[in-house]
Amino acid sequence: MNQDQGGPDSSFEDRLKAARSKQGLDAQPKRPSDDRGGLNGSAMGIGLRVGLELVSALVVAVAIGYGLDRIFHTTPILTVVFVPLGGAAGVANLWRILAPKKSD
């Protein structure tokens, strides 16, 4: 929740918050702190995000592999090496998004 970070006038902030919530001016505390800012919204949102993360890691890996191949004249080898790495990086991205949050 949006606790103020120990400012000198925290009592005023508290009273203001209490007054605002009594008047119904503040939106009710709706932000669950476990999801990262509503990014994990709808199922379709998750689906699009998953696909994008997988593909973008692969694109980067292919770009790196192809570029290194061009530099070192080893044409297919480094691309072949980097494509599985890219797939793995995509899965790592997904794990970072979808993993159960640690309590830190």
Partner: peptide, 24 residues
């Protein structure tokens, strides 16, 4: 070594995913 390579690729993939999401 494997993990470092994967993490670096994953780090760079931020550029692609951030830009393609908005653009698409």
């Amino acid at each position: 070594p494997l993990m470092v390579a994967i993490e670096i690729i994953s780090y760079f993939s931020r550029i692609i995913s951030l830009s393609v999401r908005l653009f698409a």
